[in-house]
Simulated assay, not measured.
Amino acid sequence: MRWIACELHTHTFHSDGRQSLLELASGASELGFECIALTDHNTMSGLAEREAAERETGMTVIPGMEWTTFYGHMVTVGLRQFVDWRQADIRGVGAGAAEVRRHGGVAGMAHPFRLGSPICTGCHWEFEVENWQDLDYIEVWSGMFAPIKVDNRRAFAFWTDRLNEGVRIAATSGRDWHEQSATDEPISVTYLGLEDETAPVAEEAVRSLRQGRAAVTLGPLVTLEAESGGLVYGIGAAIPAARSGQLRIRAAVDSTVRAGKWELSAPKFKLILTGSAGTVAEQMLQGPSGSVEAWSFTVPDRGLSWIRAELWGEVRGVRTMIAFTNAIYFD
């Protein structure tokens, strides 16, 4: 499987950004990204520059739009055509998300716990979600140095609560990128796992996001596999109910990704496997080695409805989560 570095929340001067799509794509390429989703507020007009931007930079540009309303912002990615955001009222986000899906896209909550009015009108999520399966993902890390922000910690806990309720929904990061400005703040990346490497990257990336085949990080890529009944299941997959009682888990940390684009200074890290039953395994690691390292764990599968991997360490003197995978589920 090929994992690609994606930025799923961006803006140009077609809404409130201060950059062209070409400038955005060029900046993303310099940071080691392979694809971006253009998600201007309530418009897709910026995509008129898509072909030229892709040709000049080699960047894959996924069409999208951020539905920007008084009740919250919903990021839509992978649309084949414009879907009218004005249909969404406080109780109608599910119908809106369904319309997005009918046009090839996925829909997710953007920065759900960011301050709302009067600081940022509509930025705080107020939509009433009757069925959580109407949405495909939650943007749990938003902005720069995302994991240390209180609103992002709330979003991450909110996602975990949904998993514990039996909702199968993905988690992503989004820079909410508006301009080309120099920064030394840690940048989070959403990696999407492409199963069909012969398919168009944009289409396969959207399919991966829809299936929850994603991992988020400030640096190294963390991946997860589970072996049950002689079969291997990856991130986003569901393991059938008939199980042996023991589960073989393989977690890998790839420090070769986006080489030279990130730096973590702490000498030790902790890899944690956690799920609906709490923490099920831990492993202390040395700092990023510039290679791919893997560890295997045997854990009981009874009582588990989901499991994920988290990488914890110190960034700029702050003990924080550095990376996490999406879940593997259990039927």
Rank of each mutant, 00 (worst) to 15 (best):
R2E: 15
E7N: 04
E7K: 06
H9F: 05
H9M: 07
H14L: 01
S15T: 12
R18D: 07
Q19G: 03
Q19L: 09
S20D: 08
L21F: 01
L24D: 13
S26I: 03
S26F: 05
S26K: 03
G27F: 06
G27N: 03
E30W: 10
L31Q: 15
F33N: 06
C35E: 01
L38Y: 09
L38H: 04
H41Y: 01
T43S: 06
M44P: 06
S45P: 03
E49T: 00
A53S: 02
A53L: 04
T60S: 04
V61M: 03
G64S: 14
E66M: 05
Y71P: 06
Y71E: 09
R86P: 07
R91L: 10
A95C: 12
G96M: 02
A97R: 08
E99Q: 06
A107Y: 08
A107F: 07
A110V: 01
F113M: 03
F113H: 10
R114D: 15
L115C: 09
G116D: 14
S117M: 10
C120Q: 07
W125C: 01
F127M: 04
V129H: 07
E130W: 00
Q133W: 14
Y137N: 07
E139T: 11
E139I: 14
V140R: 04
G143V: 06
A146W: 00
I148N: 04
K149N: 10
R154A: 12
F156V: 00
F156P: 00
A157P: 01
F158W: 10
V167I: 11
A170N: 00
S173F: 13
G174M: 04
T183S: 05
E185K: 09
P186D: 02
L194V: 11
A199R: 10
P200V: 07
V201P: 01
A202M: 03
R210I: 05
T217I: 02
L221C: 07
V222I: 14
E225F: 13
Y233W: 13
I235K: 11
A238F: 00
P240W: 03
A242V: 15
I249C: 15
R250Y: 00
V253N: 09
S255D: 14
S255V: 05
A259Y: 10
G260Q: 11
G260P: 09
K261P: 13
L264K: 01
S265Q: 13
A266G: 15
K268I: 06
K270I: 14
G275H: 02
E282H: 07
G287S: 13
S289E: 13
S289Q: 11
S291E: 11
A294P: 10
F297K: 02
P300C: 04
P300T: 08
R302L: 12
I307L: 12
E310T: 07
G317P: 01
G317S: 02
R319G: 05
M321T: 02
I322R: 11
A323F: 09
N326V: 11
A327G: 00
A327V: 05
D331G: 08
